[in-house]
Simulated assay, not measured.
Amino acid sequence: MITCVVHYTIDPAQIEAFERFARTWMRLVARHGGVHHGYFLPAEGASDRAEALFSFESLAAYEQYRALFGVDPEFVAADRIREESGCVLRYERTFMRPLLPTD
């Protein structure tokens, strides 16, 4: 399993647009074979940081999902939320492997 951790710098004035963006991507990840662990939004402290975590069975499975960017109409529409609202100022992806508790 591989987990993608996305670190966002967001526009706090566009939090509602960011939430629409996030809900759309959670649905798309699930529809295309991934497991979305959620978006984590500002509550206290810095109000311009958000995080997302989602997993795919393998890097190859993630790459199949990524191949739909800019091609699939639903992916294009999801990105349009970000582009038109300016809710995401910057983002960075990191790939990690989970170390899970054992019995």
Rank of each mutant, 00 (worst) to 15 (best):
residue 31 R to Q: 10
residue 57 E to A: 09
residue 56 F to M: 01
residue 29 V to I: 15
residue 13 A to E: 10
residue 91 Y to G: 02
residue 41 L to H: 06
residue 43 A to V: 15
residue 26 M to P: 01
residue 36 H to F: 04
residue 74 E to Q: 12
residue 32 H to P: 00
residue 65 Y to F: 14
residue 25 W to V: 01
residue 58 S to H: 03
residue 93 R to T: 06
residue 55 S to F: 02
residue 4 C to E: 07
residue 82 R to C: 12
residue 26 M to Q: 05
residue 16 E to G: 07
residue 74 E to T: 11
residue 38 G to K: 02
residue 68 L to E: 02
residue 23 R to H: 11
residue 83 E to A: 13
residue 20 R to M: 08
residue 22 A to D: 01
residue 51 E to V: 14
residue 96 M to K: 10
residue 46 A to S: 12
residue 13 A to C: 11
residue 86 G to E: 11
residue 47 S to N: 15
residue 88 V to P: 01
residue 74 E to K: 14
residue 40 F to G: 11
residue 56 F to D: 00
residue 66 R to M: 06
residue 77 A to P: 07
residue 32 H to M: 05
residue 84 E to I: 10
residue 97 R to V: 06
residue 25 W to F: 04
residue 81 I to Y: 01
residue 27 R to G: 09
residue 8 Y to I: 06
residue 83 E to Y: 13
residue 47 S to D: 14
residue 32 H to Q: 05
residue 90 R to W: 09
residue 87 C to H: 08
residue 63 E to Q: 12
residue 93 R to Y: 06
residue 72 D to W: 15
residue 32 H to T: 05
residue 38 G to C: 05
residue 54 F to E: 00
residue 99 L to W: 11
residue 53 L to F: 03
residue 56 F to G: 01
residue 42 P to D: 07
residue 95 F to S: 04
residue 56 F to P: 00
residue 89 L to I: 09
residue 31 R to L: 08
residue 51 E to C: 07
residue 67 A to H: 04
residue 33 G to P: 04
residue 5 V to H: 08
residue 2 I to R: 11
residue 102 T to P: 04
residue 17 A to H: 09
residue 26 M to D: 00
residue 75 F to I: 06
residue 34 G to D: 01
residue 81 I to P: 02
residue 78 A to V: 15
residue 44 E to R: 13
residue 27 R to M: 10
residue 45 G to D: 09
residue 2 I to Q: 08
residue 47 S to F: 11
residue 50 A to N: 03
residue 100 L to M: 09
residue 51 E to T: 14
residue 52 A to R: 01
residue 10 I to Y: 03
residue 73 P to A: 09
residue 40 F to V: 15
residue 98 P to F: 08
residue 35 V to L: 08
residue 88 V to S: 03
residue 9 T to D: 08
residue 42 P to I: 12
residue 15 I to C: 02
residue 10 I to D: 00
residue 11 D to E: 12
residue 95 F to D: 04
residue 101 P to V: 07
residue 62 Y to C: 01
residue 11 D to S: 14
residue 66 R to L: 04
residue 70 G to E: 08
residue 53 L to R: 02
residue 54 F to H: 01
residue 28 L to E: 03
residue 6 V to K: 06
residue 62 Y to R: 03
residue 93 R to E: 06
residue 25 W to S: 00
residue 8 Y to Q: 02
residue 86 G to D: 09
residue 40 F to P: 13
residue 8 Y to V: 03
residue 99 L to Q: 10
residue 16 E to Q: 12
residue 25 W to M: 03
residue 101 P to F: 06
residue 102 T to H: 06
residue 54 F to R: 01
residue 43 A to F: 13
residue 44 E to K: 14
residue 32 H to N: 11
residue 48 D to C: 10
residue 34 G to A: 01
residue 67 A to N: 04
residue 50 A to H: 02
residue 17 A to G: 11
residue 70 G to F: 15
residue 102 T to E: 05
residue 99 L to R: 14
residue 43 A to D: 12
residue 99 L to N: 07
residue 5 V to R: 05
residue 20 R to C: 07
residue 28 L to P: 04
residue 70 G to A: 08
residue 77 A to S: 12
residue 96 M to H: 07
residue 54 F to N: 01
residue 77 A to M: 15
residue 23 R to G: 10
residue 71 V to P: 07
residue 86 G to V: 10
residue 18 F to Q: 00
residue 27 R to D: 09
residue 66 R to A: 04
residue 3 T to E: 08
residue 46 A to T: 11
residue 71 V to R: 14
residue 2 I to K: 11
residue 15 I to H: 03
residue 87 C to M: 09
residue 32 H to Y: 14
